[in-house]
């Protein structure tokens, strides 16, 4: 649905130039929620803005639903933007106009006839549970409510794509959760494809199907969350399962075991102790609900040498969990 192909963007010239995007390619499947994580300055924001051409890449192209956004100009670009909604960290609502007028503005931008705008705006506000605040000013609403209005505005023109620029970063944890749930629900109900950027791994854990990690303008790793958590050395996975730093222990091998879905309920460690008669110690463990599924990671210290470690890993793999040696 969204194809970002070899996109590069630099700001400034000469030695002061900042490379915001360095040959970034990302593929977001239709109907999925894709999260780009990274610290501030990693280029996430610039990347997101290339999708609706608020930012133009120096090279590469961006295709949304078969339309090459990077090649659009003038009216065609405005029309493409009607199909791509966007929500912002600071909501960006017009403070001197009412909530309903803010949403109506999105409809006016598409050229919708005047008489249809208010009913449609109220319908959108109802969708986010704020129809009763239609005639208030945004300043009278709480942060979470303002973001709901932002979402209603972004979706008023009936887009297929929603871009989220740190939509929950200015909100408290409770409100963050409710906004994320709203985005997830709307994504399912309306068949939206969501591309979000965030610096909070929690956001990825809660609603994303797939993620990319960015650092200094580059994508370090990307893939579906299911794949990423089974990838040895994945930094996204390490963030999702905080089992701590791996430390060398004499005469032991360190093994990470990652399990998802059904295998999460099986007593794989106990099985291991029985099969090999090993005194396995657990160094750390993390259980998370990722994309609605149970998933976990356990860090084990297994006494023995490399051959023992290999046997253990084979045995674990046979039981349907993913295991690999750390610090090998």
């Amino acid at each position: 649905m969204i194809s970002i192909e070899h996109v590069s963007r630099r700001f400034g010239d000469g030695p002061d130039a900042v490379v915001a995007l360095d040959d970034v390619s990302i593929e977001v499947p239709r109907g999925s929620i894709f999260g780009v994580v990274g610290q501030s300055g990693a280029g996430k924001s610039t990347l997101l803005r290339t999708v609706n051409a608020l930012e133009r890449p120096d090279s590469g192209r961006v295709v949304v639903d078969g339309v090459e956004v990077t090649a659009l100009e003038g009216k065609a670009l405005l029309q493409a933007r009607h199909q791509i909604g966007m929500v912002f960290q600071h909501f960006n609502l017009v403070g001197n106009r009412t909530v309903a007028q803010n949403v109506e503005f999105a409809l006016e931008a598409t050229g919708a006839p005047k008489k249809d705008r208010r009913p449609k705006a109220l319908e959108m506000l109802d969708l986010v549970g704020l129809a009763h605040r239609a005639d208030d000013r945004p300043g009278q609403l709480s942060g979470g409510q303002r973001q709901r209005v932002g979402i209603a505005r972004a979706l008023a023109s009936g887009p297929d794509v929603l871009l989220s620029d740190e939509a929950t970063s200015a909100l408290d944890p409770e409100t963050t959760r409710s906004i994320l749930e709203l985005i997830q629900r709307l994504s399912r109900e309306l068949g939206l494809t969501v591309l979000l950027i965030t610096h909070e791994m929690d956001v990825v854990k809660r609603i994303c199907d797939a993620a990319a990690l960015m650092e200094t303008g580059r994508v370090i790793e990307q893939g579906s969350l299911d794949d990423l958590i089974r990838t040895p050395g994945s930094r996204v996975a390490a963030e999702l399962f905080p089992v701590g730093e791996a430390h060398y222990i004499p005469h032991h091998r360190i093994i990470d075991v990652t399990y998802t879905g059904l295998s999460a309920d099986r007593p794989v460690i106990a099985q291991l102790a029985r099969d090999f008669g090993l005194d396995v110690s657990i160094l750390g463990a993390a259980l998370e609900t990722i994309g609605g599924h149970q998933a976990g990671r356990t860090r084990l210290a297994v006494p023995g040498d490399a051959s023992v470690a290999l046997k253990v890993i084979d045995s674990l793999t046979a039981q349907g969990v993913t295991a690999w040696e750390v610090l090998a």
Partner: peptide, 30 residues
């Protein structure tokens, strides 16, 4: 006027004229 408002208006595919009328003027009028 908060630059974010201009960005939001652009993201909605609003024309410049609409941006001036519905965002810039309401915010700048006071």
């Amino acid at each position: 006027v908060d630059p974010g408002l201009f960005e939001a208006a652009e993201s909605l595919g609003a024309s410049r004229w609409l941006l001036v009328r519905r965002v810039l003027l309401p915010q700048a009028t006071p």
